[in-house]
């Protein structure tokens, strides 16, 4: 019998969770499409689909956690999981890169062109006469009406501090985990979760202010579109990250993680740092500049 340098291979057998996930996905997305097309029924099936996906995630990860607790995973499986998570985060980076790209394109190229710079002289002369390019803008059509922006050094700055602090607390939690100090681990992790949810509460308040007092909406031209899409997708990722943090908090309380065996913790920590870095980009390019 030959011995593998890495130990033995792990090959799981049949699994029903992916099919549950696919069914949830098709129910959710087909319903979403029908909902957008005006079907009243579809919003109920949409939630059914989403619930199915959540059920799948609990079931699938639950199975993986049980196998991990049973000691079935060796260093090689751990390595595969790590690569999987890193490349998943990379795909998320590329998704945000598109939205940032749209923002940079509008600010550096298309808005100045509408104002007549570069090759845009005739566009400005014939189509949008008198439009003066600026940022923020809702375009030469003044779409969505007059609006004001959210000042960077108010709530957004506080939110920056909150996320940066949460990056520190999760690192402290990680150090505690490596030293096998479970009480410190739980404390710092709970602090991270709390900071995550405070961030979200502030963000919701900011949106409310934008819509009710500042006149800034999704329809406020290219500024409103890039502002809400970037901060909105980031907010969705913070929500997901906070839920993931809550899950590993519960698992920490249960004592699942060992100083040398805690991939799930690290995966969530990576994800949280990623969300953090995206926010820094947002703070600089959406709010401050």
């Amino acid at each position: 019998m030959a011995q593998h340098a890495e130990g033995s291979y792990y090959v799981p057998h049949d699994t029903k969770w992916p099919m549950v996930g696919s069914l949830g996905m098709i129910i959710m997305l087909a319903s979403a499409a029908n909902w957008m097309n005006g079907s009243a029924m579809a919003q109920w099936t949409f939630w059914l689909g989403l619930a199915t996906i959540i059920f799948m995630l609990f079931g699938w990860f639950g199975e993986v956690i049980r196998e991990s607790q049973a000691g079935l995973y060796n260093a090689q499986v751990d390595g595969s999981f790590r690569m999987g998570m890193s490349w998943f985060i990379y795909s998320e980076v590329m998704f945000f890169a598109v939205l940032f790209g749209a923002l940079f394109y509008a600010r550096a190229l298309s808005v100045p062109w509408l104002g007549g710079s570069g090759t845009g002289a005739s566009t400005n002369e014939l189509l949008w006469q008198g439009y003066v390019p600026m940022w923020p803008t809702n375009g030469p059509g003044n779409l969505g009406g007059e609006f004001q922006t959210i000042p960077a050094f108010g709530i957004p700055f506080i939110n920056t501090l909150i996320l940066l602090t949460s990056g520190i607390t999760i690192t402290l939690a990680h150090h505690a985990l490596i030293k096998d100090q479970r009480r410190e681990l739980v404390t710092w992790l709970a602090a991270t979760v709390l900071l995550g949810f405070i961030f979200l509460v502030f963000q919701v308040g900011e949106y409310k202010e934008a819509y009710t007092e500042l006149g800034l909406t999704l329809g406020s031209g290219i500024y409103g579109a890039t502002f809400f899409m970037l901060t909105g997708f980031h907010g969705m990722h913070v929500t997901l990250g906070a839920i993931m943090l809550t899950v590993i908090l519960v698992r920490s309380i249960k004592g699942h993680f060992k100083p040398k065996h805690h991939f799930a913790f690290e995966a969530v920590a990576w994800y949280w740092h990623f969300v953090d870095v995206v926010w820094l980009g947002l703070f600089i390019f959406v709010y401050a500049l």
Binding site: A102, L109, G139, A225
Partner: peptide, 16 residues
Amino acid sequence: FGTNFFNAAGGGDPVL
């Protein structure tokens, strides 16, 4: 949802 990424009137650009 009323965004204007690709609408010049809103400062967007179909070429984007």
